[in-house]
Structure formats: C-alpha cells, structure tokens
C-alpha cells in the first residue's frame, strides 16, 4: 500500500479535487448507463405486454362476435 493514511489518500497531494472529480464522474456514468438501460427495458416490456394483451382481447372479441368455432 502506497498511502500512509486516509487523509493523504483523499488529498492526492493537492490534486484531490481533480482526481476524485474524474473518478466520481466516471463511476457515476458507468452506474447510470446500466440503470437507465434497465429502466428503459422495463418500460418497453410493460408497453409490449399491454399491446399483446390488447391484441389477445381484440382477437377474442372478434371471434365471439362472429360466432366462429374457436
């Protein structure tokens, strides 16, 4: 381990804000990207499920109204 104590580590020899500024933004990006993707996927799945359910009901209604044998 190169560092003697935590405060040295955080200070990064007076370059602390820059180094941690990079680290935080990069980490945030690599967490946000999958999170946003997961949310977008969830919304897509909900939308598709609603669409399929509606189509199934339409199909059922059409068959019942025309008196077809299923």
């Amino acid at each position: 381990m190169y560092w003697n104590n935590l405060s040295d580590f955080l200070a990064m020899g007076s370059h602390g804000p820059y180094v941690w500024g990079c680290f935080v933004v990069m980490a945030a990006a690599m967490i946000l990207e999958p999170a946003l993707l997961r949310r977008s996927r969830k919304r897509l799945l909900e939308r598709l499920r609603r669409q399929y359910r509606a189509e199934a009901l339409d199909g059922k209604a059409a068959r019942e109204s025309s008196g077809e044998c299923p």
Binding site: G13, S14, C22
Partner: peptide, 23 residues
C-alpha cells in the same frame, strides 16, 4: 490508486491516466 507510487513530475494527479487512457 492504492499500490502505484506517485509520479516524479506530476505528483499524485497523474493517477487520472488510469481513468483517462482506458476511456
């Protein structure tokens, strides 16, 4: 960030290369 030593010319700030270069 934990093991590599500091740089003679750039001090500790050089550690950004571990993020910048891969990106």
């Amino acid at each position: 960030f934990l093991i590599a030593p500091g740089d003679a010319q750039q001090g500790e700030g050089y550690r950004i290369i571990f993020l910048h270069v891969p990106a």
